[in-house]
Structures are given as structure tokens and as C-alpha cells.
Simulated scan of single mutants.
Amino acid sequence: MRDKITEIFRKIKKDPYMCAGVIITGIILLMILVGLFWMPYEPTKMNASEKLKGISFKHIMGTDNMGRDVFSRVMYGSRVTFLIALGTVFIGAFMGTLIGALTGYYGGLFDEITMRVIDAMFAFPSILLALVIVSVFGTGWMQLLFSLGIAFIPSFARIVRGEVLRCRNTDYVESAKLQGVSDIRMIFVHILPNIKGVLASSILIGFNNAVLAEAGLSYLGVGSQPPYASLGKMLSDAQQYLFTTPSYCLCPGLVIVLMVLGFSFLGEGIRRWE
């Protein structure tokens, strides 16, 4: 086990993409973890005398139009965006992998009908599909999470189905069939572990898309509702103060960029390892 961990660290050091991804993602995750236990100020606390203050020792990212500390709200908003993106990818990857594996393995009429439904869902951009679902179930972070999760199912289903179709007639699968291995064991023990690299890379790319989708929908006002912070909602509130208090807008935008960039580097690194 120790040798395996050492080998992983050696690979990371040699790969600039993985190295950059680990460092950037580590910084973002550290900020989120610290925010669980400590924040400089209460993120929802308003102070009329501190409105739209610039960067200072007291407020390292300045304050917003209601006198709230931007750094504290960025810490809280990063957590919200991260957890919604994580939940989105979990729902999309779990359901998409299950659907893609079953349709790819069994094929036939089941595959045709299921994939036509997936194609119909895939025809809609994920944000548009999520907006339709949110319009039915209402606004809020929980509704946004499930809406984006459903919207992300088609992409994972198509990727996994394609990989299962590629693996279905390989020698090791045929050998397992001759040994009388059950279909469930065939799918989850013999096929899916052999596509873990593609699936891991797809999950990281999906996480990036989920971060951007959450930020975009929160920007439109269908995510976390006031007074709670989210990075997209902060950008929406700050856009009119871009030239008077640039830190108010640039700081949450920078965190979104770093979050996406870090996981993009990780995904590229994993793809290069395969």
C-alpha cells in the first residue's frame, strides 16, 4: 500500500497537469474545509457603515453592497457551489452509469427505446433542461441539485454505453461468460472496472460543467436564495459595482475559474495516465 501511494506521488510530480490540478484543487478544498469551522465574519451579517469597502486588512476581499464581508461569503458560497456540483455529478454519474451499462450490455429493443429517450434529453442543453425542471419544482439549492443531476444523466449514459459496447465482445468478457458468470457480476465486476479511467475523467469534466451550470443558474436567481451566498448569485449582485468596487465581483469569479481549472487539470492528468 505504501509503495502504491509513493508511486502515485511520483507520477503526480512528473505530470505538470496533475501537479497543477492537485495544488489548485487543494487550495479550494482547504478554503471550503476551513469555512466549515471558521470564518472571519458571519456571511449573512450586514453592516450599513461598511458598504462597498475595498480590499483592506479588515476585509481582505472587501465588502458588498450590504456591508457583508466578501471573503466570508466566498468561503460559504464556494461550499454551496462545490456541494451542489458534487451532488449533481453523483446523481448524473450513478444513474447514467447504470443506464449506460444496462443498455450497452443487453442491447436490442431495450437499448433502442432507452437511447432514444436519452437522445431526446441530450438534445436540450443541460442548463435549459435544468431550467425546465426547476420551473416545475421551484427554486432553491435542493431543487437545483436534483434538476442538474437529472440533466447530466444523458451525457454519462452515452459515454458508459459506448465503453460497454466496446468491452462487451472482448476476450476476458467471453471467457467470463464461458465460466457461467452472471450478468450483474459481468457488468459490475468485469466490465465497469475496466472503464474506470474514462469514467473518472468524465466525472471530473462533469464536475466542471456542474460548477459552471450552478453558477449560471444561481446568477439567474434559481439557486440558493438570499440571504445565503452562492458564487453565481454573488456575481449577479456585484455586476453593477464592477467599476466602483471590483473586488466584490472579481473575487467570486476568480474562485469559480480556479475551481474549474483545478478539476480540468486533474481530468487531463487522469486521461494522460490511461
Score class of each variant (00 low, 15 high):
residue 193 P to D: 02
residue 249 C to E: 05
residue 205 I to V: 13
residue 252 P to E: 06
residue 157 A to G: 06
residue 250 L to S: 02
residue 188 F to V: 00
residue 165 L to C: 10
residue 172 Y to A: 07
residue 155 S to I: 15
residue 233 K to S: 09
residue 253 G to D: 04
residue 181 V to P: 04
residue 237 D to H: 03
residue 244 T to W: 00
residue 241 Y to V: 07
residue 245 T to A: 14
residue 225 Q to S: 08
residue 234 M to C: 09
residue 248 Y to W: 01
residue 234 M to V: 07
residue 244 T to I: 11
residue 219 Y to R: 05
residue 192 L to D: 02
residue 198 V to Y: 06
residue 228 Y to E: 15
residue 195 I to A: 06
residue 177 K to S: 05
residue 238 A to S: 15
residue 238 A to L: 00
residue 241 Y to L: 02
residue 160 V to H: 06
residue 160 V to Y: 02
residue 217 L to A: 05
residue 169 N to S: 13
residue 175 S to F: 11
residue 232 G to Y: 10
residue 206 G to V: 01
residue 210 A to R: 04
residue 253 G to L: 06
residue 226 P to E: 04
residue 156 F to A: 00
residue 184 I to Y: 11
residue 201 S to Y: 08
residue 191 I to F: 04
residue 170 T to I: 09
residue 194 N to E: 10
residue 246 P to L: 00
residue 218 S to N: 11
residue 177 K to P: 01
residue 184 I to P: 01
residue 172 Y to Q: 05
residue 251 C to E: 02
residue 220 L to W: 09
residue 227 P to Q: 05
residue 167 C to E: 13
residue 204 L to V: 04
residue 245 T to W: 00
residue 199 L to A: 02
residue 166 R to C: 04
residue 166 R to W: 01
residue 223 G to D: 12
residue 236 S to K: 08
residue 171 D to H: 13
residue 212 L to H: 08
residue 155 S to N: 10
residue 248 Y to Q: 00
residue 208 N to R: 09
residue 248 Y to S: 04
residue 217 L to Y: 10
residue 199 L to M: 15
residue 200 A to M: 10
residue 155 S to L: 05
residue 202 S to D: 15
residue 233 K to N: 15
residue 247 S to N: 10
residue 165 L to H: 07
residue 251 C to I: 12
residue 245 T to F: 01
residue 210 A to H: 04
residue 241 Y to K: 03
residue 194 N to I: 07
residue 231 L to K: 10
residue 180 G to T: 05
residue 198 V to G: 07
residue 186 M to H: 05
